[in-house]
């Protein structure tokens, strides 16, 4: 059946993309929280934060983008959960289609939805004074990192989507992911944090990804940091994919 994999995935992708375009509110609500954080930190706390950067919104944006993805992927779990509940999942499984096409369609839809949300957040940041002199190459680098990060978190979201018992359970898993950037260099430099917190912040994936995106935006040399960021994203992606696929195989066995 794998010879139909691309055709089946495309057909199912068309289906779930319609779900998004017909409920744009899911994109809007995804962006509300990150935008609120951005407003709060730039206009309320920002004046008191020593970020060592001329423009705090420019300093902040990379972390906000990661929060956007973390809150966006909970909709992937939600949509997958609804499919499992409604019986349409079983209809697809009882049809002669490539079995993993069902998951891939959801994952690619998540990617599209998150890229739209990210674009909305970037536009708001531009209005708030975010400026970058980054060239095409640097922007492509940022895009690449965000795509990798989104895919990794989306495959992670597939697991609760397949296993959750309730709709709340399907989406609640993303809360810790949303708050992970607070324990990183996303909002403030890590130097002022006390020892153990600083050790955690400096060695967790968000910090390396945030720093890499920030360096790309401000045209600083990214150094070896970007490889650490890519390694985190790819590592997380591989592990999440393996777990999601084995969960899926157990579910459809």
């Amino acid at each position: 059946m794998t010879r139909h994999f691309f055709g089946d995935t495309t057909a199912l992708l068309g289906r779930s993309l319609r779900h998004i375009t017909r409920s744009m509110d899911t994109i809007i609500t995804t962006t509300v929280m990150p935008i609120m954080f951005m407003l709060l930190f730039v206009y309320v706390f920002g004046g008191a934060i020593q970020s060592g950067s001329d423009s705090y919104v420019t300093y902040l944006l990379p972390g906000i983008l990661l929060i956007t993805v973390a809150s966006g992927i909970s909709y992937t779990a939600y949509r997958l959960f609804l499919d499992m509940q409604s019986g349409i999942f079983e209809r697809f499984q009882s049809m002669p289609i490539a079995r993993s096409a069902v998951l891939w369609a959801h994952v690619l839809t998540s990617l599209v939805a998150n890229l739209i949300s990210l674009a909305v957040v970037v536009v708001v940041a531009l209005i708030m004074g975010f400026r970058s002199s980054a060239g095409i190459g640097a922007w492509l680098g940022v895009l690449g990192l965000l795509v990798l990060f989104t895919l990794a978190l989306t495959w992670l979201a597939v697991i609760p989507g397949l296993t959750a018992k309730t709709i709340d359970g399907a989406s609640a898993f993303s809360y810790p992911l949303v708050f992970l950037p607070f324990l990183s260099s996303a909002f403030v430099p890590t130097d002022t944090m006390p020892g153990p917190v600083r050790a955690f912040a400096e060695n967790q994936p968000v910090t390396s990804i945030v720093n890499a995106i920030r360096d790309l935006f401000t045209q600083q040399p990214v150094g070896s940091g970007i490889w650490v960021a890519i390694a985190w994203c790819v590592g997380l992606l591989v592990v999440a994919y393996a777990f999601a696929m084995s969960t899926y195989r157990r579910r459809i066995a």
Partner: peptide, 8 residues
């Protein structure tokens, strides 16, 4: 349960 897609 009718396995139809409500949004389509």
């Amino acid at each position: 349960f009718a396995a139809v897609d409500e949004i389509l």
